[in-house]
Design a protein around this nucleic acid. Sequence first.
DNA 1: CGAATAGTGTCTCTCAGACATTATATG
DNA 2: CATATAATGTCTGAGAGACACTATTCG
Lengths: 247, 247
Amino acid sequence: MKAEDDEKEFLESYDPSIYDRPSVAVDILPFTQETGRLKIIMVKRGKPPFKDAWALPGGFMRINESADEAAMRELEEETGMKASRIEQLYTFSDPGRDPRMRVLSVAYLCIIAEGPISLAAGTDASEAEVFTVADRNPLELISTSGAVIHEDNLAFDHAEIIRTALARMEGKAWYTDIAFAFLRDRESFTYKELMYAFEAVLGKPQVPSNFRRKVNGIWRIEPTGKYGPQSGLRIPELFRFAGRNEK
Amino acid sequence: MKAEDDEKEFLESYDPSIYDRPSVAVDILPFTQETGRLKIIMVKRGKPPFKDAWALPGGFMRINESADEAAMRELEEETGMKASRIEQLYTFSDPGRDPRMRVLSVAYLCIIAEGPISLAAGTDASEAEVFTVADRNPLELISTSGAVIHEDNLAFDHAEIIRTALARMEGKAWYTDIAFAFLRDRESFTYKELMYAFEAVLGKPQVPSNFRRKVNGIWRIEPTGKYGPQSGLRIPELFRFAGRNEK
DNA sequence: CGAATAGTGTCTCTCAGACATTATATG
DNA sequence: CATATAATGTCTGAGAGACACTATTCG
């Protein structure tokens, strides 16, 4: 990143053995959503350390790809899903966070659009599972079978990473279009579906009228002229995301 | 960070040559402040690429230190200054951002408390200089000698990194105590000095009465009972930072 | 018409921004 | 008492939260 004198310093202070550079990995936080409830996909560890504990998907960065590319690749390799949006979260670099070796890890927040979740078979994904985020502080996850996972039972420092991600998402909910990434289709959605997406991000229920007013104050939500499937009785209007309001 | 299968994958996809792991560096953004004007310390490059251009200080991470520790060490080595606060900003990983080699760089926002700036001699610091942030978009820096540096003339992608840092600082101004890190002394300051710190962070002038009201609504600013040096005629009261208001 | 979901309107309180006023020190 | 800085007070408009009301569809 900088001067040659850094390179000089580098050559002086490093032994040219491979073990003198940290490995670089990416940790993936794959979030999705269903009727306002936030979900996260995790994988079960097959070997020590933390054997049988649930962990974030992830893997090592390759030499010719960026961290963003590594995150997208690992997400698909380990879960079979594609993200509608990824965002770098934080880099964890504490020596000793992995007891086996020196690993520096770049964490990525990934959002998977609502839809059928089919964790690909035949790969590591056979170990993957979707959890509902039931509580945020302390963290509490619930598996599809109903089992409750407390944050103390997650591998490594992954509970802390997840809490960091949740805080970041909440903070960005109204200032970025992050919640829209949870929508099945940005070109066609009802206000109720949009409200579900925001509720998943914010972690608390919204009041429909106030929600509508606030969203309309920030973003352009254009009517498509079409009408959605009646989940109840009155048929809801379908809208399209059209960017931020000019202020 | 994760499963042994990742390690297996690591062993499969990596050639055990040292060049197959990226080097890991830290980039430092050392900010300070004077009468509401934000300043940044940069170093002049002595060799290509970008010879003679101004760049952020930084250097390679050592194998037994965290990125935070590397940031603090490099700041002191290259500028002779100590930060009152550091905060990880973003990790830049694009292959090819450094034309010489594969370098992954973790950028750190560092805040140096207001006070005498003595860039240490005898080290790389002889090349360091303080710039005033005159404009933020596009970025424009002014050296002590009055020379104007446009963002296009900075080395590497450092202009983008600085703009990212400025946006982050502004965003955190009211939600964290980041502005207080610019104070010479958290235990004794006037409201005017505090306002200068916030003006440096926010990049625009504040109205004293409104500023006081807003600050008091968020933080506990306790009177010390002492009175500061009269910069003008009436003698200002001195205050102490006492944390966030319980809400 | 009753019930269930979709969508609109209204009231109040808080707070940011603009600006006016009072207080304290000095020559 | 004129002046310069420090500190407080007042007015207004925008927006968030709570909640009541209207609209559409079905049996």
